[in-house]
Design a protein around this nucleic acid. Sequence first.
DNA 1: GCGCGTCCTTCCACTGACCGGAATCGTCGT
DNA 2: ACGACGATTCCGGTCAGTGGAAGGACGCGC
Lengths: 255, 255
Amino acid sequence: MAGRLSTPGTTVTSRALALLGAFDEDHRRLTLTELAARAGLPVPTAHRLVGELVAWGALARDPRGRFAIGRRLWDLGLLAPVQTGLRQLASPYLHDLYGATLDTVHLAVRDGLEVLYLDRLAGNTSVPVVSDIGSRLPMHSTGVGKVLLAHAPPEVQADVLSDLRRITPYTVVQPGTLRRQLARVLRDDYATTVEEMSLGACSVAVPIRAGSDVVAALGIVVPGLRNDRAKYVAALQVAAQGVGRALAAARRDPS
Amino acid sequence: MAGRLSTPGTTVTSRALALLGAFDEDHRRLTLTELAARAGLPVPTAHRLVGELVAWGALARDPRGRFAIGRRLWDLGLLAPVQTGLRQLASPYLHDLYGATLDTVHLAVRDGLEVLYLDRLAGNTSVPVVSDIGSRLPMHSTGVGKVLLAHAPPEVQADVLSDLRRITPYTVVQPGTLRRQLARVLRDDYATTVEEMSLGACSVAVPIRAGSDVVAALGIVVPGLRNDRAKYVAALQVAAQGVGRALAAARRDPS
DNA sequence: GCGCGTCCTTCCACTGACCGGAATCGTCGT
DNA sequence: ACGACGATTCCGGTCAGTGGAAGGACGCGC
């Protein structure tokens, strides 16, 4: 009366990964039962797998017996190639930029149809900023997103343009309007948003290039854009070019 | 003539984890064959498991067909509880400190018998700094290490004191000397090093407290320590107290 | 062009590691 | 004391995983 009832086709590995996938921004700590439910596994099965994950250090138990992502996965995550390298290289330039403006500064790359934020220096202003390191936001409503979208392959652009969600009253939801904006981004080599992601927040962003490819974007969030737009664009471009040169230098050296 | 020859006791999960564990600081990119060898698995077995890991996003293939840690593991790593929370909370204070001094600033915790660096703002000076985010260094030769060691449980202190590796000619390798320094750290509430980790680099560090527990350390690396030591200590303590207050506030609020 | 070395991928029959319902064991709150 | 809930342990049936062998896909030297 025992036997295996798991739906065929499910591998052990995929189950272990499902357990890891049960954690997200809003669920950093889970009990075994929650974990099993979120991963779609029976409790005893989850128990055994989780035991192995904990033994290895992928998960950890907190004092209350709940589970969380372990330190070893944190270590591994830092080894992820593109992000870490880029983040480390760009870090000093981000700080320079932050020092010069004291506004919130972002480093982001495209991940599928979204923007992935690799780093953020939080400005001390009270501008509402929703991004956070590791978070993803839509491309059509952020400065860095527009830059990355403008340089993305046509099929990505088409996918994004076909589903423009409204986020604030000022979000651009007309494909035609956005397409025109993207053309302008290519021409001017920078993008802006005005309260399109959150009210009271405007942004300017520029591309970061490795050779001729756009590999990331650098952005700044400010309370408003008056006549000082040129100042921000200039500071951003200096920083972006610095990162680009550092990237090129690093690419020649190791790999 | 097929059959299973794997040594009994090895689980699928442990093999998948062994594959992840094959990556480290010096091996960020591996071919399938290297991966299999480092994980101690036959190539076909590694091939199948790696396929699942890639499908899930734990690993990624680069253009040359080699494997590396994937973006999804990077995401997960950011969810690791202690570090992320502390890092996020401390971030603005680190930036303030960096802005005030323009020297390299560190946030670190104790991990076993070593110091684990959670964050670093790289100063633009040319002081040789060996630490990096996620890296581990010995406790007896770094400023943050001495702070954390001074507040560590006696058995940890004993373990560390029993094996003081020499790193530079100035590294403290006499247990008695270090013990006296630790006592002074407790009295003065800050620690210093003078070229004990790398030549040309000195450091000052202070503890970060949550309540009365020391949970982390804040340090700064400078080219030399003259009469300005007091200035650094004061700046560090202001920042550390700020982080401590933020920690206390955060602890009251959510979980 | 051709042989050779290296690495990647597919195949497939055997079998022991995994599965999960059921039962047991804490540990709460009432 | 008792019920409710979650964490553990048990254990026999079975199928997912195993890995040697064979087949490709390159790249390189001659």
